[in-house]
């Protein structure tokens, strides 16, 4: 067992801020993704950027703009666990 936890939430927040101009104070676990203008294509862009930075594949079919920041974070984390 590795005790190393990748700083996934920090990287996710960075990507949302840099690429999509989402304000940090809006990146809360219960924020609904479409409320911060992340439509289905934007979520694919987020997934592609994260894939490139983190080095593992994120299953985009499970992305849904009706979900929350927390759902997105969980998805990335479970992808990290499977990598």
């Amino acid at each position: 067992m590795s005790t190393f936890t990748p700083p996934t939430f920090e990287i996710l927040s960075q990507v949302l801020e840099e690429k999509f101009g989402v304000l940090r104070e809006d990146i809360k676990p219960d924020t609904v993704l479409e409320d911060i203008e992340l439509d289905s294509l934007a979520l694919i862009e987020v997934a592609l950027t994260l894939q490139k930075r983190l080095g593992f594949v994120i299953p985009t079919e499970d992305l849904n703009s009706g979900g929350t920041v927390s759902d997105l974070y969980e998805l990335v984390n479970s992808a990290a666990g499977n990598a």
Binding site: L41, A42, E45, L48, T49, K52
Partner: peptide, 9 residues
């Protein structure tokens, strides 16, 4: 958005 994503990749 596709073009930008390709450039990034």
């Amino acid at each position: 958005r596709i073009l930008r994503a390709v450039a990034e990749q």
